[in-house]
Design a protein around this nucleic acid. Structure first.
Lengths: 308, 308
DNA sequence: CACATCCATGCCCACAGGTTATGGAAGCAG
DNA sequence: CTGCTTCCATAACCTGTGGGCATGGATGTG
């Protein structure tokens, strides 16, 4: 009895949402498609999985049985998929490196060079992650090692090493009243609206809002963005300001956005992270050592830099 | 990343067979189909799974990783499928009963009636199994309880109760020299070719060949059949003779085939079987009790009948 | 050198999964 | 009671793809 995992995901979506219409929206398919697919799954299994009513789709007893066991199955498949891809990377002598936009910045080429020196014949496959995943794919097993900003959610289940720290500056619209000043005390920014990362990024979001360094004052959120491009636009358009690593002034320059040093806020730490299981993996450890050896504070080291 | 389990089965078949051609035969698809499907799986995973050569398809490292984990995954899916179907049966107040052709014969209606008396509102869903599965679907979890002939392969992992025993007769071509006699001593049949069940049915096949009651003489196989119809045809066409329960003379009468009592061979036992997990299931136990209570030796009880 | 045995390719057909548009049933507001 | 909304089901249609057959290319073997 063959099934496509897509069908199973469809089923789970309907089971969770309770109506075809909402599940269809979530899955980005049309509602008639779901109608047909769910019906097909039912005939395939030879069991009614839902009782239909104008109120929506309610699970039957066999439906509940299926819904209870499916998630583990899909997770297991995901795991197999990842392990296979990892094996493929190894077989091709390729290390998958995830990185956050603006994580290591100018340190990155040096790291790559140093890794190449230690592992001749190996290549690195760089994968940029969006802000929705501050672990840069490491938490999902999509990469073997990641260059990222600390702290990030899920960090405790992984290994991390700090490479360097870098002062946090502020990015603000060119015509912002505070833009005339050279250095901005953080407390002057407390009441400004901020452009923030999505809420699911947890402590990483909090860190870039410096939520713990506002003396208990609440944060005003002016916009939520998921990518550097949207982030810059939001700032340029006046939706808010944002903290950013000092190097962002060079790597994310854009007309309408200026960067200023900030005093009274801690630095940002750049780190390398890997899975606990790779503590003994020679290739991963070579990369980590390459990071530690070649990472130097960027040239613009000035202000409140402190390693955590 | 969505996959059809069919694709995964294809992959495993190729991995096990070592060549596309043989795997294609085993899967009952054409070889070009497999070529395309395997290639598709590879692009889907982004990894070479096989190294092609004229000698066949050899697994790569990622291919081995996948092949090692897939069977457990497919088994798990099978399990989920069965549990869902079982739940569906329960929700519909329906007990799935597997039975071998000619297992309980005339006892069956009495059993059903007795079960209906104990469980008003429930119905039984009778599923006939071919000879290729002497557990009548119970080993695979396709049914909740089964009426069958003992012994059968896999019996030790299940619960069984003997209902009655029935003498074994012989089915032979009408014009067979031995057909003129009334009762045939089994030893007179030792050198006759027999029509047998498929080899994978193990001890069940051996039982119907009475392999252990030939004083060490080897069995001559004249034909292998998987269904009653083929079986009768094979006998009528003179490919061989076969032992059969006495009741087969009534349930499987066919022109060209006659049945004769046999002396010197043990009886056949009819039993009911269920899964160990259902020892405490009230519905299953009701069915078992219905069997035990209403099963009486068939009218033709004569000869060497002994219960095991 | 012919032949067998692999896998790959090209061409074609059928089907299934997707879409939009529309219908029917049943609550809810006026 | 009527009209609106919110469900799911149905119909008609399009297209991608899984499947088949026939055939080609590579490489050993009698």
């Amino acid at each position: 009895m063959d099934v496509d995992t897509r069908l199973l995901r469809y089923f789970l979506a309907v089971a969770e949402e309770g109506t075809l219409t909402r599940a269809a929206e979530r899955l980005f398919v049309s509602q008639p498609t779901l109608t047909k697919q769910i019906r097909q799954l039912e005939t395939l299994l030879g069991a009614r999985l839902f009782t239909r009513s104008r109120a929506g789709m309610a699970l039957t007893e066999p439906g509940r049985a299926l819904a209870a066991r499916l998630p583990a199955l899909l997770t297991a498949w995901d795991q197999v998929l990842r392990e296979t891809r990892r094996a493929a990377g190894r077989a091709a002598r390729s290390l998958r490196v995830g990185f956050m936009a603006s994580a290591a910045n100018e340190a990155t080429p040096r790291i790559i060079t140093e890794f190449a020196r230690r592992r001749p014949g190996w290549r690195v496959e760089m994968r940029q992650a969006g802000w929705s995943d501050p672990s840069a794919g490491l938490a999902d097993g999509d990469v073997d090692v990641a260059l990222l900003r600390l702290p990030f959610p899920g960090q405790d289940a992984l290994r991390t090493a700090v490479l360097f720290s870098e002062p946090r500056w502020v990015a603000l619209p060119e015509d912002h009243p505070l833009a005339v000043r050279d250095v901005l005390p953080f407390r002057d920014l407390w009441d400004e609206p901020f452009v923030a990362a999505p809420p699911e990024t947890g402590r990483w979001r909090d860190h870039w809002l410096a939520a713990g360094e506002r003396d208990g004052r609440p944060v005003r959120i002016g916009a939520v963005t998921d990518q550097p491009d949207d982030w810059l636009s939001a700032i340029a358009n006046g939706y808010g300001i944002a903290l950013a690593p000092a190097s962002a002034a060079r790597f994310y320059a854009r007309p309408g956005v200026t960067y200023r040093p900030v005093s009274g806020v801690s630095s940002s730490r750049v780190g390398v992270a890997w899975a606990v299981a790779d503590d003994t993996d020679p290739v991963v450890q070579d990369f980590v050592h390459a990071c530690l050896e070649s990472a130097r504070p960027p040239q613009t080291e000035a202000g409140t830099g402190t390693a955590g």
